[in-house]
Amino acid sequence: MSKLKYLPNVVTLKLDRAKCNGCGMCQIVCPHAVFKLEGRKAQIVDRDACMECGACALNCPEGAITVKAGVGCASGIISGMIRGTEPTCDCHAEGGNCCG
């Protein structure tokens, strides 16, 4: 079975290669092998595999990566719409979670 892919050309991931110091942290933390070090600089090699978790941006010491991270969850987005807030995992009033 090939890797499951979600919708193409939607993610907000951006990499500023000029700022990259080649530390490779993005390649380590990415759960979908979106980055690869090429010529001592990171490169986005599988953009559509990005799930916008935000781990790369948070762990980039140079601030070279930006991504609008958030919850990729329909019910989270719906409850955010109802409450007029950002999408949230808190499906329950007491602050529990709905993720597995």
Binding site: V11, M51, K68, C73, C99
Partner: peptide, 12 residues
């Protein structure tokens, strides 16, 4: 999508 491990919020 909330339980899946590969969907992006922008896509959802």
């Amino acid at each position: 999508t909330g339980a899946s491990t590969y969907t992006s919020p922008s896509g959802v």
